[in-house]
Design a protein around this nucleic acid. Sequence first.
DNA 1: CTGGGGCGTTTTGCCATCGTAACGACAATA
DNA 2: TATTGTCGTTACGATGGCAAAACGCCCCAG
Lengths: 243, 243
Amino acid sequence: MAKSCFAARLAKQVALSDAECRALERLEENPRKVRRGAMIQRVNDTVTELFVLREGRVMSFVILPDGSRQILRVYFPGDFIGSASTIYSKAPESLVALSDAVVCPFDKHALRRLLEEFPRVAALLFLLSNAERVSMTDRLAALGRTSAKARVASFLLDMFDRLRITDESITDSFDLKLTQEEIGDSIGLTSVHVNRMIRQMEQEALISRSNGRITLLDMARLEEIGHYTNRHKDMDLDWLPVG
Amino acid sequence: MAKSCFAARLAKQVALSDAECRALERLEENPRKVRRGAMIQRVNDTVTELFVLREGRVMSFVILPDGSRQILRVYFPGDFIGSASTIYSKAPESLVALSDAVVCPFDKHALRRLLEEFPRVAALLFLLSNAERVSMTDRLAALGRTSAKARVASFLLDMFDRLRITDESITDSFDLKLTQEEIGDSIGLTSVHVNRMIRQMEQEALISRSNGRITLLDMARLEEIGHYTNRHKDMDLDWLPVG
DNA sequence: CTGGGGCGTTTTGCCATCGTAACGACAATA
DNA sequence: TATTGTCGTTACGATGGCAAAACGCCCCAG
């Protein structure tokens, strides 16, 4: 693994200069291990920290007054987490580790210095934040206008494609490490209905499962059912300032 | 009106330097009038332009293969539109004017120069993009986990609060300028059901209407019903680089 | 002034999708 | 053995979609 998980991730998009790499590495000087289920940030806490996720999985979510939960995003190694605290003094969302994980917290003032010193990194962060926004809008359209089955299909494809960004060994199967309840809370369904859909998709030979591992058997049809488009292919960052 | 609608908007958050203001003004050198219903950007078009909205209303949306529409966001004067084209070469969403409007297109290379030259503006854009992300997650939670009535309530409150940012004359009533079908397409409901909810809320004296104008009669209860929190109050941008 | 056409809203009846509640099976952990 | 967490399964019913039609309003042409 590179010294900086985050730099390694960014370097997949743009060639980074040495100085930029070193600066990004400094964000990860304080790795912290957290156990599955550990609360990293609680909604409404006063926060001044952001995180780079180095290992494991983390989710952000909110709990509504009636106790129901909406998972906002699942994060994978190399992801930049908690950018909401750049603008709000109280966290608008909670962060919990979905598996044992390693996160690297850093203060938002460290981010400020980074943005001042490396305009290109600033631009890059701006872009990634826009990519996340688009990912949100995709899910918004899924929740607002597609069936339960379509949501499950697109969710699986999205997780799959995102995992593949950093883990090239993945070809057609992956470990979701999410309970069906967590899947449901991500796409606005109950665990019961997620289960219905998954079993249905298994019967139709769209996917198969064995002890938690999911294999995508017919991606073309899954993409069709889920109205899914892989956004990662169409990125264009050539217009960025040169390093 | 200030020379730059966008600078005026940003200045509500942070004091801008003269140089910054002038740079922002340059983004609006090419105002363009568009009529209600006009397509400003079509999904999958190759795009290199972004926009500042100076007057009127614009929406971004996607159409799913079955013909249904999800409105992703409604934009008001002073908003920065189309940031998705900073990272994708093909537009992931369409833009249409909801009313007669004035938009100011500028090339993404102009944005790049701005980001290079004014790190603080870059940071500010990064922050605003995060604010929009949070706004998306709020709606995501609404679509995923709240009832039709809650969605309508929170949608009305959100429009209300966003309009009030730039128009201080608004106290408790506003012109939505959206059809019920458009409201439905924003919050994942049919126009029929939006109508049901609106009439119900009118009967319960939560809101009242007269020729398109909506008055919020009981904001406290609306906030409760919609699980709404006004994010605009809690912003903290003091940590930004000094101009 | 009158009649029509277009657009948005209102209303209704029907019913599919999906949520709720409840319970059993099973595996991992203590 | 007891416990906890996840998955699988069922019966029942509410929420909200769908289709269709009528209504009101505004604008324009005759």
